[in-house]
């Protein structure tokens, strides 16, 4: 069944703002396909974004949308979700937005296990500001603020979010849009904090400096540095070095979701005749 994209997009906001060949559109498309398959109503979906190329996504979708300030999307989304716990809240963020300036909010959204889906468009670079290195820029590669090769270790956002307490973490890339859509769908229906680490191509700001100025070449490169969980099982740690495993990397259906925990506490408070201690 084909998706009527016009039902989900603010068509008068096109053409979009992203560079030709950008992976952001692939991730947005996968997200809309997932929403369509789930049959969710536009009125019931909130999308919150921070600052960066990927954060412009909130302007294109016909939901309840907010484009906030750099790094704070998850904190704003937490407020929106807590005031409307029955509604669906989704955050789109870039790697820098989510894990650098927004790192503290990321850790604590994971810890609370609040029912929000975070889709990180991880293209290894600050694209909008002109190609500065982010926490996920591969070590050794070139960025405008690492002109001699990135000295920083890079961040594995799946490991980070699993460690911080997220209960659904999956990684895929724009090279596998159908798999990406399937993971996003699982993430959206997961009760708890879910994270999609979506590797994407910024051939303009990262690629051109690193001999991947062609989007097809860069998508091929993303393929070459990722390996599916099934294949990874058969590989040695030595072989897996410098590779990112894709797949549903973590799923926990038992940890209590935060709005439930909170409103259970509300029930406890309301059943007590005396004030809280």
């Amino acid at each position: 069944m084909s998706v009527e994209y016009e039902n989900y997009l603010r068509m008068n906001k096109f053409p979009h703002y992203w560079c030709p060949g950008c992976g952001n559109g692939v991730v947005l498309k996968a997200f809309i396909q997932a929403v369509d398959e789930l049959g969710w109503k536009n009125n019931d979906i909130g999308m919150v974004t921070g600052i960066g190329c990927s954060s412009r996504a909130s302007g294109y979708v016909d939901f309840n949308t907010m484009h906030t300030i750099h790094g704070r999307a998850l904190a704003v989304a937490t407020g929106i979700k807590m005031s409307n716990p029955s509604k669906h809240v989704v955050v789109f963020a870039g790697d820098g937005d989510a894990s650098a300036i927004g790192g503290n909010h990321l850790i604590h959204a994971c810890r609370r296990n609040i029912d929000i889906t975070l889709i990180i468009i991880n293209n290894w670079i600050y694209g909008m500001t002109g190609g500065q290195y982010s926490p996920t820029t591969p070590t050794g590669t070139i960025a405008t603020t690492m002109p001699y090769g990135n000295a920083d270790p890079d961040f594995d956002l799946a490991s980070l979010t699993i460690g911080a307490g997220a209960t659904f973490v999956a990684r895929s890339s724009v090279a596998d849009p159908i798999i990406l859509k399937n993971y996003i769908k699982k993430a959206l229906t997961h009760k708890g904090f879910s994270v999609i680490d979506a590797f994407s191509n910024c051939h303009i700001q990262w690629g051109r400096k690193n001999k991947f100025g062609d989007p097809v070449k860069l998508v091929e490169h993303i393929k070459s540095v990722t390996v599916s969980a099934a294949k990874a099982k058969k590989m040695s740690p030595e072989e897996l070095k410098n590779l990112f495993v894709t797949g549903v990397l973590y799923e926990d259906k038992d940890k209590k979701e935060y709005t439930e925990s909170y409103f259970d506490m509300v029930k406890r408070a309301q059943s007590q005749t005396k004030g809280g201690r």
Binding site: R72, A75, V76, T78, G79, K81, S83, N84, N104
Partner: peptide, 14 residues
């Protein structure tokens, strides 16, 4: 920072 951001979200939530 999260506190004021969250309060802004709650306000938009009504």
């Amino acid at each position: 920072i999260a506190s004021i951001a969250c309060a802004i979200g709650g306000s938009l939530g009504g």
